[in-house]
Amino acid sequence: MKPPCKECDPLWREEFSVRKAGEAYVARCQFTKFLTLTSLGMFVGNLWILAKSFVSRQVSYPEQAIANLGEIPVGGVKVFQYPNPGEQCLLIRTGADEYAAYSQKCTHLSCAVYYSAENNRIECPCHEGYFSIRDGSVLQGPPTRPLPRVVLTRRNGQLIALGMDAEPES
């Protein structure tokens, strides 16, 4: 057997670079490395949300006439598509001179919601999620986010959609 060499490591040390006693260190070190990379991944996720929030701030919605005033009766509903074709929204006449409009897509799992005139609220048939007609906030059920509201204005006897507002009015 060759005498131990001071300058160079023997072959076995190259191939089994960790002594058994040092295994605990290496295992913990690698696990912490994995956790740190997970942490980096989540930081990147947060940066992505930040970037998205800057980009979506600049989204502009089209102005679109959605109904004539008085076209629907009190308690009546009209379905329209806004802001893009295929994105269904509900226009609800809640009083003689009051209208509200919301996206028809439930914020839980995207079922189509409907207006329940007898309970005066918006209901989702899938998991019984209920939304307030006043501001779209969640009254009951699994949804955690309010229904996106369509911002309305009146012009020349018409109701005009100006944009979407995902936050309930305070």
Binding site: S39, F43, I49, T144, E167
Partner: peptide, 18 residues
């Protein structure tokens, strides 16, 4: 939910935790 104001503090704290 449309509350974009939480994105910046969220990213800053996440960066600090990282």
């Amino acid at each position: 939910a449309g509350r974009r104001s939480a994105a910046l503090p969220g990213a800053i704290f996440s960066g600090l935790l990282f």
